[in-house]
């Protein structure tokens, strides 16, 4: 059994080395993940990125960056029913909720304000349209079309701050996604 004790003492001696390697991989990986995209960064990160991703360790803390939105936006869905009538569904608006409800419902804002409205996340728009359609599921008069509209209202610049009057954004209403509802969507 001498070999067991030798193995034990050897592994105890190696522990700081193994620990150091693991720590350096973790720290290096996190730093690279948080760095701005670049081909070099991607190449260095490539061997470990899939493990960080699989373990849920990828991260980003770019809060209110690179700039804070200068427009207030609300999102509505216009639902056309089979009989031709329309109904409007308003995505949860935090400012209209009671203070206590805002904490629980804030994730809806995160969903539609920070993701659904953004083009890189357009893949989630059909699901959103289906979700809205299900709110109007009536076998007698089912929804047939859902369109998503954003309504933006610019925040006036602070007094005394110079700004380009011509480029000042105007209130805008835009339909950015239209979805034809099929029967399977309502199941």
């Amino acid at each position: 059994m001498a070999w067991i004790s030798r193995l034990k003492s050897c592994s105890a001696g190696m522990r700081p080395v193994i620990g150091t390697v693991a720590i350096l991989i973790y720290m290096g990986g996190i730093l690279l993940i948080l760095m701005p995209n670049s081909p070099l960064r991607d190449r260095i990160l490539a061997p470990v990125y899939r493990y960080f991703l699989a373990l849920g360790l990828t991260q980003s803390y770019a809060v209110f960056t690179p700039y804070v939105a200068t427009t207030n936006v609300i999102l509505t869905a216009t639902v056309t029913l089979k009989d031709g009538t329309t109904a409007v569904w308003v995505f949860p608006r935090m400012e209209r909720l009671a203070l206590a409800a805002r904490g629980a419902k804030e994730r809806y804002r995160k969903w539609w304000h920070d993701n659904l409205l953004q083009d890189p996340c357009s893949a989630i728009r059909p699901d959103a349209a289906r979700f809205v359609a299900r709110q109007f599921a009536d076998p007698a008069n089912p929804p047939v079309l859902v369109s998503l509209q954003s309504h933006s209202r610019p925040i006036p610049p602070p007094p005394g701050v110079e700004f380009d009057q011509k480029n000042m954004p105007q209130p805008e209403q835009k339909t950015f996604f239209v979805y034809k509802v099929v029967a399977e969507d309502l199941k």
Binding site: T65, P66, V68, A69, M94, E95, R109, I155, P158, V161
Partner: peptide, 18 residues
């Protein structure tokens, strides 16, 4: 970010209704 360096970010952030 130019907006943060100019110091106007908090002005806009505090005016976001959501």
């Amino acid at each position: 970010s130019e907006q943060w360096l100019s110091g106007l970010s908090v002005y806009y952030a505090t005016r976001l209704d959501q």
